[in-house]
Design a protein around this nucleic acid. Structure first.
Length: 275
DNA sequence: CGGGTTTGACCGGCGC
DNA sequence: GCGCCGGTCAAACCCG
């Protein structure tokens, strides 16, 4: 299961003025990047990680020999559940007899487990913009939490990426976003008149860049896709966000070798140190 | 009218 | 076998 939830980030933007729509508001910018203390919810995701560990893992640089990335003594139950639910996933069956479809699927061991990628963001807005378009397909109450969990699917046809969004019940200001799967397409051309989030980077408009949650998420996602998966190429070399956008990003402390590599890959993710 | 959201029902896997 | 649980479906609804 540690493979499913391999990356958790904690993103804490500023909040000056907050409105109610994911786009305009969280007019925040990234101020700090750190791992969240293991909460009960997240226990099965990560445990006692440090910034460096987290980031290293995030970039797929975790030395395979060192600490187990995501281990929690008591997560056996959870992990089973996670696995189990994985197996329930996926069925776009539009046919009338759902049961049959599911039965078939079941028989066909259609249990591919998509990689997951989760991070936490301090935001008043639940649904952080990442450049993609999502359709909500469900909402469930979260056990032991007053906050519901929402389920979204990428609206692009043939793209089965999903994401879950829920608010941490321990820190209601924190939103936990879990992506599942890989987009097999580029970011939709327009999003509120802008190029949304992640990829066609050089096109980002200043206004969008200032949406801290957006660009940060975008970059994390991009990072994840680039480092952990080689199936998709979004033109990494030229993906350079305006440096201003992330100047306050907490600079990760990585070994020079790793840091240099990452800097090459995502320059904007590692803003130059300017005191 | 098309696309998104809401929400109760349903499903399959566990654990007891 | 039953109940719980997380996840999904899909009809009804909403909205631009």
């Amino acid at each position: 299961m540690s493979e499913e939830f391999r990356d958790i980030y904690y993103h804490q933007p500023f909040h000056d003025d907050v409105q109610s729509s994911a786009g305009e508001n969280s007019s925040t910018y990234t101020q700090n990047l750190q791992m969240l203390d293991p909460s009960s919810y997240m226990d099965h995701f990560l445990h006692g990680s440090t910034d460096q560990n987290a980031l290293s893992r995030a970039f797929g640089l975790t030395p395979s020999t060192s600490e187990p990335p995501v281990v929690d003594g008591g997560d056996s139950n959870k992990s089973k559940k996670e696995n189990q639910h994985k197996e329930c996933l996926e069925d776009h069956g539009d046919n009338s007899s759902k049961k049959e479809a599911k039965a078939k699927k079941k028989g066909e061991k259609n249990k591919q487990r998509e990689p997951r990628f989760a991070f936490m963001t301090k935001s008043e807005v639940d649904l952080l913009e990442d450049g993609y378009r999502w359709r909500k397909y469900g909402q469930k109450a979260v056990k032991n939490s007053p906050y519901p969990r929402s389920y979204y699917r990428c609206t692009t046809q043939k793209c089965s990426v999903k994401k879950r969004v829920e608010r941490s019940f321990q820190d209601p200001s924190t939103v936990i976003t879990t992506y599942e799967g890989q987009h097999n397409h580029l970011v939709p051309a327009t999003l509120r008149g802008n190029v949304g989030g992640i990829f066609p980077t050089s096109m980002l408009t200043p206004s969008l860049q200032l949406e801290g949650g957006t660009s940060f998420h975008a970059q994390l996602l991009q990072l994840h896709q680039m480092t952990n998966n080689h199936l998709y190429n979004y033109g990494s070399a030229n993906n350079v966000y305006d440096q201003q956008n992330l100047t306050t990003l907490h600079q990760p402390q990585l070994p020079d070798s790793e840091y240099g590599l990452l800097q090459d890959m995502i320059p904007s993710f590692f803003p130059k140190h300017e005191p």
